[in-house]
Computed example of a mutant assay.
Amino acid sequence: MKGQPISVAIAKLGYPDSEMSIAGKKVYTWNNQDSGSYTVPTYNTATTYVNGQPIYSSVQGSRTTSYDYQCKFKVIASPGDIIENFEWNGDIGGCEAFAMRLQKKG
């Protein structure tokens, strides 16, 4: 993306969440956040002794797991809106959507 107009990033990512000027440069920021939870099944085997004899049983249950994915993608552009640099800050769950959109041709 370096050397291309900011319009290329906007065409692929949509309008940025914020735009600001710092030291004569423009900084465009896109944010992505996704959180939630999901339930997964669990299986355990239990052994119970009755009159000294083992009785084996399988116990099925569930466990809830939560996630919180985040990403901040910044593009630094010249006063003429030419991309000079960019940076990522986040995890794969949050940044993957940006990476996929940037890899698309067109």
Rank of each mutant, 00 (worst) to 15 (best):
F98W: 05
D17F: 02
Q33F: 08
S57R: 09
G14S: 08
K26T: 13
C71F: 06
F73A: 00
V59M: 13
K74Y: 04
G93P: 00
W88T: 07
V75M: 13
D17N: 14
N51R: 03
G61W: 08
S78R: 09
Y69H: 06
S37Q: 12
M1T: 12
Y15A: 15
V59R: 11
D91N: 08
C71G: 00
G52Q: 05
G52H: 05
I10A: 04
I10S: 02
Y43G: 03
N31M: 07
V40E: 11
A11T: 04
Q4K: 15
L13M: 02
D68W: 06
G36A: 05
S7L: 10
I10C: 03
S78I: 01
I92A: 14
K72M: 12
N32M: 10
E84Y: 03
K12R: 03
N89V: 03
T29E: 13
A46Y: 10
G61Y: 08
E87R: 08
K72H: 10
A9H: 00
A97Q: 11
S35Q: 15
T64K: 01
K74H: 06
C71E: 02
N89Y: 08
N51K: 09
S18C: 06
D81L: 08
D17I: 02
R63A: 10
G93C: 08
S7M: 00
F73E: 00
I92D: 15
Q70W: 14
I76V: 14
V40R: 11
T42S: 08
Y28L: 14
S66Q: 11
S7R: 03
G90H: 06
P79D: 13
Q33A: 09
S78F: 05
G93V: 00
S37C: 01
K105F: 10
G90M: 11
V40T: 09
D68A: 08
S37E: 08
M20Q: 14
C95L: 04
N44S: 12
A9Y: 01
Y28V: 04
I22T: 05
G106N: 13
P5Q: 07
Y43L: 09
A97H: 06
Q33D: 11
V27Y: 08
K25H: 13
V8T: 11
A99M: 12
G90R: 02
T64S: 03
G3K: 03
C71I: 06
E96M: 06
L102D: 05
A11P: 00
S35G: 11
G52D: 02
S35W: 09
Y67V: 04
K74D: 11
K72V: 14
C71L: 02
C95E: 02
G36P: 01
G36V: 02
P79H: 10
T45K: 12
M20E: 15
M1N: 11
F86P: 07
N85F: 07
